[in-house]
Simulated assay, not measured.
Amino acid sequence: MSKPKVLVTRRWPDAVEARLKALYDVTLNESDVPMTADQMRQALKDYDAFCPTVSDKVDASVLDVAGARTRIIASYGVGYSHIDTEAAKKAGFVVTNTPEVLSECTADLAITLMLMAARRAGEGEREVRAGNWTGWRPTHMIGTKVSGGTFGVLGFGRIGREAAKRAHGGFGMKVIYFDPFPVKPELAAETGAEKRDTIEEVLRESDVVSLHMPGGKDNYHLINAERLKMMKPTAILVNSARGEVIDGKALAEALKAGTIKGAGLDVFEGEPRIEPSLLACENAVLLPHLGSATQATREAMGWRVMENLEAFFAGQAPRDRVA
């Protein structure tokens, strides 16, 4: 019996690629160059499984393929706003993601962004590397104390809760949250998190606002000029979720005007392109989408993709089906 044909759109950790080779007739992207829309459409005709990442835009035009051979789109990553799931359903594709395994490392990164923005770490490192530091002085590069402040979470899912645990347990922060879906009381109780009924309440009360909403049209520019004005002028905005949740131009204007104190961003709308006005903001920490970038987590994401593939090819329901 021939092995299923599987296409992987980007380089994955070596251990995962080796296991894929052992189990499937797999084609790897050795160059690690993003595939074009035409190449992805062709792949859907030629392979039994198509394995994209969050950097691949699998929209309706890509999925509109006559005589597609692919039946499962097993995505590498927890977010799946890069896939038009409604179009996938209509075309008969099964879509899976990789939840849970990256929650801790992404939450660690959110806290890293909070601290870097609060303590002006990016500015400080740039000053040292440029040879401009003249020595310690009492008024130099004064930052913001986060310990004991209020940590607001928008999106109290797995990653949001992990970030809340770190803020509460490590820094004694009060946790408040908004989530459009019900949260089990015991999950909120882990950090003493208090529910707020609206996004606006969280924005007004928080010293740090950490975004953990999914991307997509429902949350497009959730944080806009109007909502930024609701935040404290001493507040810090952190985004380790999806770039399109923030209006980048509005954020840059708010940072320059002092509407808010600072921001820490790991994701960007249209990345790897970054809103030029953000690049000019000294009070913005900008990282290249490192949320899940540890060896253990990136391998765990690959194993989760393989778990979904194995179930699907065995005629079972994949654990992480999202469409």
Rank of each mutant, 00 (worst) to 15 (best):
M116N: 08
A88H: 02
L113K: 03
T106I: 14
V95S: 01
T112L: 14
A118F: 06
L115K: 11
T134W: 07
P138A: 15
E104K: 14
T134A: 15
A91D: 04
T139R: 11
G148A: 12
G124T: 05
K89M: 05
T106G: 09
H140P: 01
W133E: 13
A110P: 09
A91P: 00
P99R: 03
S81W: 04
H82M: 10
T150F: 03
E123W: 03
A88S: 06
W136L: 13
L113V: 11
E125R: 15
K89V: 00
H82D: 08
K145A: 08
H82A: 08
L113W: 04
F93Q: 02
I83A: 07
A91C: 02
G122D: 13
E104T: 14
R119K: 15
T139Y: 14
E127G: 05
G131I: 12
V153E: 03
G124M: 04
F151V: 04
T144E: 11
F156T: 03
G155V: 04
R137I: 00
R158L: 04
V146Y: 06
V128A: 11
R119P: 00
L102Y: 05
E104M: 00
E125P: 04
E127W: 04
R137A: 12
E125T: 12
K145H: 09
I142Y: 08
V101M: 09
G135M: 11
M141K: 14
G148W: 11
M141W: 07
V153R: 02
A110R: 06
S103Q: 10
S81L: 00
A107H: 06
L113C: 14
S147T: 14
D108W: 08
G143N: 05
V95R: 05
K90Y: 01
S103H: 11
M141Q: 13
P99E: 06
V95C: 10
E127F: 10
